[in-house]
Amino acid sequence: MVGIITYGAYIPRFRIKIEEIARVWGANAAEITGGLGVLEKAVPDYDENTATFSVEAARSALCRRPVDVADIKAVYVGSESHPYAVKPTAVTVGEAIGATPVMTAADYEFACKAGTAAIQTAMGLVSSGMMKYAVAIGADTAQGAPGDALEYTAAAGGAAYVIGNDDPIAVINETCSFTSDTPDFWRREGEDYPRHGGRFSGDPGYFKHTLGAAKLMMELRGTKPSDYTHAVFHQPNAKFPQKAAQMLGFTKEQIKAGLLAPTLGNTYSGAVPLGLAAVLDVAKPGDRIFVTSYGSGAGSDAFDITVTDAILTKIDRSRGATVEQMLATKKYLDYAVYARHKGKIRM
């Protein structure tokens, strides 16, 4: 059955505390961290972007489980911060992992769910027999305008998945999506920063689609929340996924391993792929994982996943840095240096 052959994650080492951002903008830090449930966020280095995250995550995946890269026939990178407007990030990844030239590649964009859309595409290509392996990546150097609410959470990182049906470490039992035209968050061509509908991004956006896809998945599989060991939801902050989990009937314990927002922030397209990577870092054979992403605009992709014995025998998880290890490796920046890192200061 189609599933995850191997996976890898990447989180840059720099952080900024939310209270430091609040200090600069004269905001109430306690109110903001309390409201969002986010204490700090990951910041890219000067020489990092979505392409470098994607390459590092893909290489980590291949380090954990060597696969013949000649069998990788597709690379898809989902992001809303592709370094070029025209020129795919996916070809840079393909070249850097040695999978070129006999492969197809494309970049995806669907706000924060482009990474899970890439996983669905990879599943289709593998399931149809068109190829043995396909690589799906979700990564972002998330953008938020200075002083905007998004700036408190817009973070950086990503994760890569090699999808195949050759002894997967986790079988993807089912995927389904829930999609509508909902203008809750957008960035027009040529603009540096996205805009959003404020509170409108909550109920008609995040919750309608997340709950829509999640409930649809449980209907399709005939399951209930207690059937799952872990659950991962998109995490634009720490509050939304906890509320969605509670509304659906998942416990705090079930979402604990995949809830990274408090110390990572919102990595946009990287958020659910990183949350799932954190779960796979600790998963045991037989664990069942419920995953629901959300991308503004708007849509959600849900996945029902079962971890197999291969996670103990076919992959060496210690050969790649775990999400926990990368979150623990950090250097704090003040706002001025953070602004330089993010290119917010134009010379």
């Binding site: 020489d47 470098t52 390459v55 590092e56």
Partner: peptide
């Protein structure tokens, strides 16, 4: 080794990736 941006040719030119 890690994969990084080596250089950017301004805001509209090629981004040079490579090894650091």
């Amino acid at each position: 080794s890690v994969f990084r941006v080596l250089d950017r040719e301004g805001s509209d030119g090629i981004i040079h990736y490579g090894t650091k």
